[in-house]
Simulated scan of single mutants.
Amino acid sequence: MQQTSTVDPPAVPPAPDSRTFARAFADVRDAWRQRELWGHLGWQDIKQRYRRSVIGPLWITISMGTTALALGLLYSQLLGQELSTFLPYVTVGFIVWNFILGVVTEGTEVFIANEGLIKHLPAPVTVHVLRMVWRQVLFFAHNLVVYFVVLAVFFPALTEQYVMEGDTVTHPGISWTIVLALPAFVLLVVNAVWVALLFGIISTRFRDIPPVIHSFIQLVFFMTPIVWHVGVLNKVTGEGGGSWKILVAEFNPIYHFLEILRAPLLGQQQDWHHWVVVGGFTVVGWAVAILALRNYRARVSYWV
Rank of each mutant, 00 (worst) to 15 (best):
Y89Q: 10
L187W: 04
D167H: 03
P172D: 02
W134F: 11
W272V: 08
H120P: 10
L219W: 05
D30L: 10
Y75V: 01
A192G: 12
Q81Y: 00
L130A: 08
V220D: 06
T204G: 14
P88L: 07
V127E: 04
V232A: 13
A249Q: 03
I201C: 09
K47P: 02
H273G: 12
T85V: 10
P253G: 05
L198P: 03
L293G: 07
T67F: 14
V153R: 14
P124F: 02
I226Q: 05
V103T: 08
L87H: 08
V149Y: 00
I95C: 09
D208P: 03
M223P: 04
P183H: 02
Y255P: 06
T159N: 01
E259S: 14
G242P: 04
P57K: 09
R131H: 04
H256G: 04
F251Q: 09
I46K: 02
V232Q: 14
H229Y: 05
L83F: 15
A181W: 06
D271P: 02
L266C: 01
R33C: 11
I202K: 10
V278W: 01
W59S: 12
M132A: 14
D27I: 07
V186T: 04
V300T: 07
I46A: 10
A24E: 02
V283E: 07
L258H: 08
D8Y: 11
T91G: 12
A181K: 04
G166W: 03
F257S: 10
I60H: 11
N98L: 14
P211R: 15
P183S: 09
I226A: 03
T91S: 11
F185M: 07
Q3G: 14
L266P: 06
T105K: 10
L233Y: 06
E259N: 13
H229L: 13
Q34I: 07
R299N: 15
E259W: 10
A68F: 00
E259M: 15
R299C: 08
G231H: 08
R207M: 14
I62P: 03
H171S: 04
L258K: 09
L121D: 13
G116N: 11
F139K: 01
W38C: 04
Q268R: 11
G72T: 06
Q136V: 05
W43F: 14
T20Y: 07
L158N: 04
S203M: 02
R207L: 15
I55V: 08
E165W: 03
I260Y: 01
V127N: 09
P13T: 14
I55E: 10
N234F: 08
A123C: 12
V169P: 01
V145W: 10
I118M: 07
L247N: 11
N295T: 13
H128D: 00
W38Q: 01
K235E: 15
A123E: 13
F86A: 03
W176Q: 15
F99V: 03
M223R: 05
A15M: 14
S76T: 09
V169T: 03
S63Q: 00
G42H: 02
I62M: 06
Y302G: 12
G240V: 03
V150L: 05
R207Q: 14
R207E: 11
V125A: 12
G267S: 00
V169F: 04
L78E: 13
G240I: 04
H273L: 15
W228V: 12
L219Q: 04
A68T: 12
T67W: 10
G267N: 07
V129A: 04
V149L: 06
S84E: 06
T170Q: 08
W228N: 02
A192V: 00
P88N: 08
E109I: 03
V92N: 10
L121G: 09
